[in-house]
Nucleic acid binder design. Structure first.
Lengths: 219, 219
DNA sequence: CTTGACATAGAACGTATGTTCCGCTAGAAT
DNA sequence: ATTCTAGCGGAACATACGTTCTATGTCAAG
């Protein structure tokens, strides 16, 4: 019952509700919906609205005029709500220590500090958190003191990703582009004038997260 | 008539409308407002609503249930609207040419391309535009190929601002921290390992804008 | 063919809701 | 004191709106 397909009419209804709401600041009435979609009968509109509720696109309140509300799910899909997401600021990052990862269980949203980012800046919004860069130790990654790096807790990576790695031997954290090359791993600085690090034994490094975004606020 | 002061009741009404709307996705009815604010008579609520319209805090639609809408003015004041601003992407920036500034008269919002930024990332939202960095010529500013710089068209600057300058002699654009030092101007690269440029004659440089934000999308 | 689920249409109904009118009070203006 | 206005309360009214019921047509399953 949950995953039925939407009819064309129902899609038009959703569109209309959304347009009307953003235009007027309140949702349309059943009769207005009918008029716009070309349904003469209020009961048919009512019927379709209830179907949309079952499908999870709408919420309705009984006996309330215009008691209709687009679901978060839908608003997110159309980008009209969750266009802004709050990314928790969970700490700092510097060369001399591994990245302090937020504990998995603790709700990341409990963090009192957070930065707001528009959704289209991030290709993924799961498991993301922000760190403030302290010191100039990341300049070879073209990241300076005070920058904010948004990371995703993700130990899988693909060639060309920029990752935060903890180098066990050197005992330092660094941000590098990472590449698999045969049996070795190449860590490439973002600064093209600098030389890569070649890691013979993957055991010597620990990928702590993928860098999704770097933000530098100047003025 | 425009600038009357709001009574306490009217303020509570505005608060309630806002809270109710965000909670329910649609505005409250007149009777709901009355109940929450402690007004037994619908006509009194109606009266106050009309006063709020006169003051410019509300819009109303006649004979429409819940036909009430908070003004942009109010939404902006409470920070519930414009949290996201669209910054027009007006071009690219590279060393070999001056910054291509958007023409002052043309509405910057006509730009079809734009990036969305949360308001709290920018200290100012006037006259801001975005440029994409092409090439590696800005690495001494810790800015890499593909980065997006958000600038403000502003020829006034203060010590420590990062600005885009066109160096007439060298015929190149560069991003530097700028400082007034007596009669000369010092342009300091963001990369602390690099040396500053000292400009003896201010005529030799042209400040084209202030860098407000640098964004780098990785994944 | 029959059945049943689904979608639609029209009409009637009940009520939630905005509108309007009349009356009252307190305070400022005349 | 009188007048005028802003603000409030109550009640009646008109209607915008959601709900419900009956009827019709379609189409795939039996």
């Amino acid at each position: 019952m949950a995953k039925g397909k939407l009819t064309d009419r129902q899609r038009r209804i959703l569109d209309y509700i959304q347009d009307f709401s953003t235009d007027n600041g309140y949702p349309p009435s059943i009769r207005q919906i009918g008029a716009s979609v070309g349904i003469s009968s209020t009961s048919v509109v009512n019927y379709n609205l209830n179907r949309l509720v079952e499908e999870g696109f709408l919420d309705r309140d009984k006996n309330v005029s215009r008691g209709i509300r687009l679901t978060d799910k839908l608003l997110r899909a159309t980008g009209n709500l969750g266009n802004v997401i709050r990314v928790p600021m969970v700490g700092r990052i510097f060369a001399s220590e591994p990245v302090h990862l937020p504990s998995t269980d603790s709700p990341m949203f409990g963090a009192d500090e957070a930065i707001e980012i528009t959704r289209d800046m991030l290709s993924s919004t799961d498991e993301v958190f922000a760190l403030e860069v302290k010191g100039d130790s990341m300049i070879d990654a073209m990241v300076s003191d005070g920058d904010i790096v948004v990371m995703k807790r993700d130990y899988h990576w693909r060639n060309g990703d920029m990752v935060a790695v903890w180098l066990r031997d050197l005992e330092e954290t660094t941000l590098k582009y990472i590449y698999h090359e045969g049996d070795t791993i190449r860590l490439q600085p973002a600064n093209p004038t600098m030389d890569p690090i070649i890691i013979e034994d993957p055991k010597h490094l620990e990928v702590q997260g993928k860098v999704m975004l770097v933000v530098r606020q100047l003025a």
